[in-house]
Design a protein around this nucleic acid. Sequence first.
DNA 1: ACAATGAGGGTTTTT
DNA 2: CCCTCATTGT
Length: 985
Amino acid sequence: MLLLSGPHQVNSKPHILPDPQQQQAIEHVHGPMLVVAGAGTGKTTVLIRRIASLIRDGHARPDEIIALTYTDNAAAQMRDRLGAELGKREVQGLQVCTFHAYCNELLIAADRKFGVLDDKQLWIFLRKNLRELKLNHFVRAANVSKFLDDLLDFIRRCHDELVTPEAYRNYVCRLEKGELPIPRVTKSKDIDEISDEEALGRCREIAFVFETVERMLRERNLGTFSHMILGANDLLANNPEVLAKARGRAKFILVDEFQDANFAQIEVLGKIAGGNSETQNIFAVGDPDQGIYRFRGASSEAFDLFLQRFPDAKLVSLTRNRRSTTPILKSAYAVIDKNPEISSQSGAPYRREPLLSARDEQERELASKRALVEAVLVTSAFMEATDLVTTLLDRRKRSRCQWKDIAILYRIHTHRDEVANELARNNVPFSIEAMDVLDTPEVRDLLACLSAVFMPGDSASLLRVVALRQFTVDPNALRSALKSLPRDSNAGVLGVLPIIPGGPEVLGSIDKARASTSGLKANSALMSLARQFQVPRNSAVNAFLEFAQKWQEFPLTESGSPTEFLEYLEYFREARGTVPLAMTEEENSVKLMTVHGAKGLEYEHVFVLRATKPSFPAAYRESLIDFPRELRNSTSFSDFDDKTLCEHEERRLFYVAMTRARDTLTIYAPFGRGEKDKTPPGYLRELLKARELKPVLRERNCREFQTAIFAEEEVLTPASRLSEWVGMPPASDLASTLSASAIDNYKLCPLRFKLDRDWRIPGDVSAALQYGASMHRVLRTYYDSIKLGRAKTEPELLQLFRDDLRSEAIADPYQHDLYEQQGIAQLKEFLAANESHTEVLHTEEYFNIKIGATTLVGRIDRMDRAGDGRVVIVDYKTGKPKSQEDADESLQLSLYALAASEKWGYIPERLEFHNLDGNTLISTVRSAIQLEEARIEVEKIAVKIAEGKFDPKIGYHCNSCAYRGICPKTEKRVPEIAIAVEQVN
DNA sequence: ACAATGAGGGTTTTT
DNA sequence: CCCTCATTGT
C-alpha cells in the first residue's frame, strides 16, 4: 500500500509554506484585491487559506463570507478543502457556490423562480415554435433551422453584455436614422451582396426575434442560465432591500477563476461589493493567460474590467510554479508570451512574468536532468497513435508511474479516435472524458428497440433490432424480401418480417415489449426494453438512461412518454446535442480529454495531439452576426477584432495544455506540407524556430511502424452481427444498372449506395427531394399542355403545384409552407420569363444506354429543338443554384449528352442547368473527349462496385444519412475498463 | 503582394 | 456541403 503514495503526495498542498506573494494575498483583509495567479502557482490554496485566516483572526464570521466558483465541481472541492482546513463546524454558514447558484438563490428568495432551459432545450423549444419568430431573412426552406444557432449566439452575447431587447431595438432605431454604421449581419465574404436596406431588415428581424424569444420564455416562466445572472442583476439594481440583505451576507467576497467572468457577472459583483473601497472586500483570483471560455461569454478583459470597477484594487501576482519542470515552463512561456498583455487602461500595474519552477529551485541536483519537451513529427494520424502508445509505454516503464499519471490532451473529441483504438489494441487501460454515448453500439441498440416498439415504421431501427444476437432471422431472406417489394411500397422491414423465417418471433418480442411498456415513461420503458432485448447495462447505457430520466423532468417535457422522447431526440440530434459520459475519477487509467476538460488538472506525463493549424489551433470561424461595438456596455477598448481574439484564445488553450504537465510533455503534429519548411504550421513551428528553446526542446520524427498491426484490428473489435450483415457482399451485380445519381451516391459513401440498392431499406425522403419532385411534375405538365395546344394558365399551374406538394406530405408543416411559398415565387418567375419558348421535343424522357457492361439509366427533364437539327438538353435544379463550374464538370450532363446521341441520335448543341432559384440558365457544352471521360468514369465506378468495394466514407454527410444508426464505421466503443468497472459496481 | 488550388475539418462546455 | 488556411506560383 505504501507504493500508492506516489509523487502526488509530495505536492499535497497544506504542508507547503507560502511564498511571500502568496502570504501577502492570504493576509489581505479589507478592500479589493486582484490576484494574478499563473498556472500551478497555488491560487486555490491562497483562496482557501485567506478564508481560514479571515475567520481565525476574527475579521468575519463564516456567514459573512461568500466564495464563488464557476463549476459545481470546483465549489464542492473548495468546500471539502475548507472543511479539512478549518473543521466542519467552523465552516457552518460559509457560502461556497457557483455564480449561477448564487444568483438563482437570490431570485428564488425573491419569489422569482423560473424553469431552466439549457442551450439545447431552448434551441428545440424555438425549433418547434419557429413560426412564431416570423423569420424572413433568417430562414431557408431547405434547412429551416439553419440560422437558429446564429440567432441564439447573438442573443446569448447580448445577455452576457447586459443588452436588453429594448436596448437592441433602440440601437436599430438609431441605425435607421443613420446615426450609427450598419453592422455586419452576414458572413464577410457576402457583405457586398446585401444592400443596406437588406441589412437593416435583418437587424429588425433580429430585434423581433430577441423580443419574441424573451416574451415566449417570460409567458411560460422559463429562462436560461444567463437569465439567472440577468435576473439577479436586475433585482439588486431595483430592490434596495434585497441589495442591503445581499451586502450584509457578503462582507467578504472571493471569486475563483476570475478570468472566466463576463460583463454581466462583474456587474453583479460590483453591486454586492458596494460602492466605497473601504467596504469593497472583494478578492478575485485567476490567470488571464488561462481564459479559455470566451465562447461562453467570458470577457477576455475580465481583469481589466475588474480594475475599472475597483480602481483601488491591490494587485498581487504569483509566479512560483510548483508543478512543472523548467523545460516545460520555458516552452509554455514562449507560446503565451506572443499574446499581448492585458491592456488595462487603469495604469497597467500588471506585467506578464515567466513562471519559475519551484521544484527545480528546490531540487537543484535534479534540475539538470529534467526531460526535455519533445516535439514528434508524424506522417499521419495513425502514426501519431502508434508512436504515442509506444512512447507512453516507455515513459511509464522509466518513471515507474501509474496509468493515472498520464494524460492525452486534444483540441476536439474526434482527434482522439485513433489513439483510443491504439490504446485498446495494446490493452492499455484508459478512460475518455465526456464521450458521447449516442454513438455507442449499446445505446444505438437500445434506441433501436425503443423505435421498433413505438415507431415501428422506422426500418433502419427495426433492422438493428432484427440483427440482435438472440434473434434468428436469415439476413439473405430478409434482404431478398426487401428487394422484392414493389418500388412504391412503403412496407419496409416491418412489412416483410411476417413472411420470413424468424421474423414473426421478432415481431412477437416487439409486441410483447409494447404491451409490457405501455403507459410507462421513457426511462422506465428503456430499462424494461434493455432487459427484454438483452442490451447490456454498461456505463454508456446507464448514462443514457440517466439522460432520459433528466429529460422527463425538463420544464417543457409533457407526458414523458417514449414517443415524446423519440421526437425530442430527433430534434436533439438536429441541435447536435450529445449525452456525455462522465469519466470515473479514481480509476487507475490513462486519461483522454479535451484541453478544456483538463483545465485545473495536472499529470506527470502529458501528450498533446495534432498540434497543427487548423486542428490546434483551430481554424477561425466567423459568426454570422457581428456584435457591434456600439452595443457594448463593457468599455474595455482592446482594439482587436474577433478573429484576433480567437487566435489569442487558441494560444491560451495551448498554453493551458502545456502547463498541465509535471515531468514530461510530448507534443505531436503532422509534418507541414511545404517543400521548404517541413515543420507543422502553428505553435510547434514557432517553438522549433525559437533559438532560446534549443536547450529545452527536442525534435524527432516518428518511429517506423510494423505493418502487422493493421491485421489485428478486426480481431480486437468483436463485430456486431449487424456489421456482419452490412458487410455482406451484395446479392446481385449492383454495377449492371447505374444512374447519374447512383454514381453520385457511390462517390459520397459506397456503403450508403450498397444499403440503398442492395437492401432497399426505406429511409426518410428529404423535404428538398419532395419539393424537387413536385416542381418537376408541374413543369412537365406545363410543357405537355403546351404541346397539346392547351397551355395551362398561371393560376392553374399554381393550384396544381399546391395540390401536388400537399400530396408529397412534407413532414414538417412549417417547412411545407415555406416550400409552398418558394415554389409559387419560382413558378411565377419561371412563367414570366418564359413567354416565347422554342419547340419542346421531350419532357421527362427515360433512357438507357450501354457503357461497358453497365446499363446506364436516367431521365432527361427536357429537350428542346435548336438550329441545324440539334437539341438543347435542360435539367431543372430546385436546390441551391448551380454555378458555371458545376455545369462544366457535371457527370450528369455528360451522361445526358451521351444518351441523347445514342438513344435518339441527337447532337446536343448545348446542355443547360435551369436554376429555378433565381431563374437562371447555366449553359455548357461537351467535347467528344469529355464524353469519353464520362464513360471512363462510369466504368471506373462500375469496376469498384463489381470488386465489392463498399467501405463507408465518413464525413459531414453522415449527419443527414438515413443509415446513421446502423453504420458500423461511426460506432464508438466505451473503453473496456469502463465497462469492467461498471460490472463490479 | 495576391490568386489559385487543394486539403482538412466541421469546436470547445458550465450553469 | 461550406469554410479556412497553407502553399506555391504569378
